[in-house]
Design a protein around this nucleic acid. Structure first.
Lengths: 337, 337
DNA sequence: TTGAAAGCGCTAACAC
DNA sequence: GTGTTAGCGCTTTCAA
């Protein structure tokens, strides 16, 4: 492997000149730049990132803590990860992957100066990692909205507005008895931030729009979905509007609604809160509020970079939900036609 | 951040002694060791990984190239990734995530000495990355089985044996007309290695066991699954044995078989080739051949580490498939009962 | 059993 | 506009 000294020698300049050609941190005459670039090309030179990190205190790597096995839907996770990795590359950074259950991971990579910043996915309302993240020297960005961010930056879909928007859509299309089919009971119990927030927005809007709204936790298996739908329909048979915020249960909920004689898109409306592709790959294309995983991941990286470069204060960004009407929502009993 | 010098000073020893306490590369007297360890604890010392990498030429990071958006099923990908990350931690390594479509990624992290080894997922029969991987100084392990590994190590489920095992199971349970519902047409066309190999094993076993076997590509959407099932049933209505090697299509295939009047587990047998959890989360628990993603990922790391430590030659490891009988396979028409 | 010191390859003052 | 040089924090000979 050629070193910066090799390049300098080949170009007949000093190594600092090569360094400055690379970093653009001072002006270089055109001819010198040419010769250096030629030498770099000739030798196939690549800076040694460890040496660079040591000297510059910048690793050009960001840490990403992802929930690799949790009950959270995998395709959503992948979208976040994709967004983070892609945007990181735009900033000439690579991504070091940490798993949620590697508790010492944050400490290790931060104290070991392996990363310039840390992005944390799947943050819960009272996430135990927040105090720790506050102590490390690298800026951290949380994907999610904890009760107390402890001075860290946060980014997420505005799930409360999402819950409200979904309920309002059902209200506006004439439904009066509605339900929110939510996350698995264990996720609900864990007070995962997004589940709580959808819940809050949904119930608030129900109150405001005089809807009869109930909330039903729901596991991800076919049986769990069946039970959830049964529970709702048995206790509130007049329910015509459904909000489903559970990607994995969604197909089973739809299937069981059909089994129970409901015609989704005609006598029953279903609004899904899930990624685009999932909304589109159901039997009936779903009216849905997108969870824009890639965008959120990308924004997280942008926020981390901004903090690195400008030493800007931390901030919280909540992305406004967008509802896209497709086949699955229908006029409810409350309106003509 | 405390440095090794700080620790040395606090312990009243030289920095090399601290280094050796950490690396265990030479014997240290008990009292010295104590004092050093105490100082490390007191100062909360963590070695700077960049400095360590520069001096030792070991980054303690392995690169993982994963297909973040391809048609390959996400949950399978996650399992591989989980296996890699988990096992890497056992070897005190972290994982740098590269995406498939970041073509220059391998070159960048290898030439920049950012990683000690590289694991590549989703390797195709004639993968263009193989020549490149051959030129870098870090050992590479391919997850998959290319036509020509070019001297690189490979690990994968033995998909050919998997195809054979699935067909044999159907043969042994009395089915004579069988079908392999495979990957999406574009995956088939791309000659993704595993798709080809299942195909080969399946057809070979059909020939050997005198089964009438057909192969049907199948997209991942409900409609695609429906069409695939229709195509099979219309052309070969006597088909009673199905092998489904397509996680995303699986639920839709099952649903449509039911719609077409088939009773899976009674008059029709379905053997799935998919991860455990997917086999279990269908309406009918599936007889399946597991794709042991975590294990394969873990083995890939082990192979990479072995090559790093022993400079061992490259090798190929194919994991034997295991078929687990559950509810979805039934006695076929060819046997009594 | 321990220490001194020469790098590892780069960056960023500081000098000209 | 360019060169010199002192580190960055560690590992690993070489010497004792």
């Amino acid at each position: 492997m050629a070193t910066i000294e090799d390049v300098a020698r080949a170009a007949g300049v000093s190594s600092s000149t090569v360094s400055y050609v690379l970093s653009q941190k001072r002006s270089i005459s055109a001819p010198t730049r040419r010769r250096v670039e030629q030498a770099i090309a000739d030798l196939g030179y690549r800076p040694h990132m460890g040496a660079r990190a040591l000297a510059s205190r910048r690793t050009h790597v960001i840490g990403l803590m992802a929930p690799l096995r949790s009950g959270v839907d995998v395709s959503v996770i992948m979208q976040f990860v994709t967004g983070v990795v892609t945007r990181a590359r735009d900033f000439e950074h690579d991504v070091l992957l940490l798993t949620q259950d590697d508790v010492t991971g944050v400490e290790r990579v931060a104290a070991g100066s392996m990363v310039d910043a840390i992005v944390v996915m799947d943050v819960e309302a009272d996430d135990e990692r927040i105090p720790l993240l506050g102590t490390v020297k690298q800026p951290a960005v949380l994907i999610g909205l904890p009760r107390d961010a402890g001075g860290l930056s946060c980014v997420d879909l505005d799930f409360e507005a999402t819950g409200r928007l979904a309920a309002r859509h059902l209200a506006q299309t004439g439904h009066r008895d509605v339900v929110l089919i939510g996350s698995p009971p264990e996720v609900m119990a864990r007070h995962t931030s997004y589940a709580d927030r959808v819940f809050r927005g949904f119930t608030a809007e129900c109150a405001q729009s005089s809807l009869t709204g109930v909330v039903q936790a729901c596991g991800s298996t076919p049986d769990a979905a069946r039970s959830a739908v049964d529970a709702v329909l048995d206790q509130a048979p007049d329910t015509t509007g459904f909000v489903v915020h559970n990607e994995r249960a969604l197909p089973h909920v739809l299937a069981h609604l059909r089994e129970r004689g409901r015609d989704v898109g005609r006598d029953t409306a279903v609004v899904a809160v899930c990624p685009h592709d999932i909304a589109l790959s159901q039997h009936v294309p779903m009216t849905s509020i997108d969870i824009p995983g890639e965008v959120i991941g990308a924004v997280a990286v942008e926020m981390a970079m901004a903090r690195l470069e400008n030493a800007r204060p931390s901030e919280t960004r909540l992305l406004a939900p967008v509802l896209t009407e497709r086949g699955s929502s229908a006029q409810g009993p409350g309106t003509p036609g």
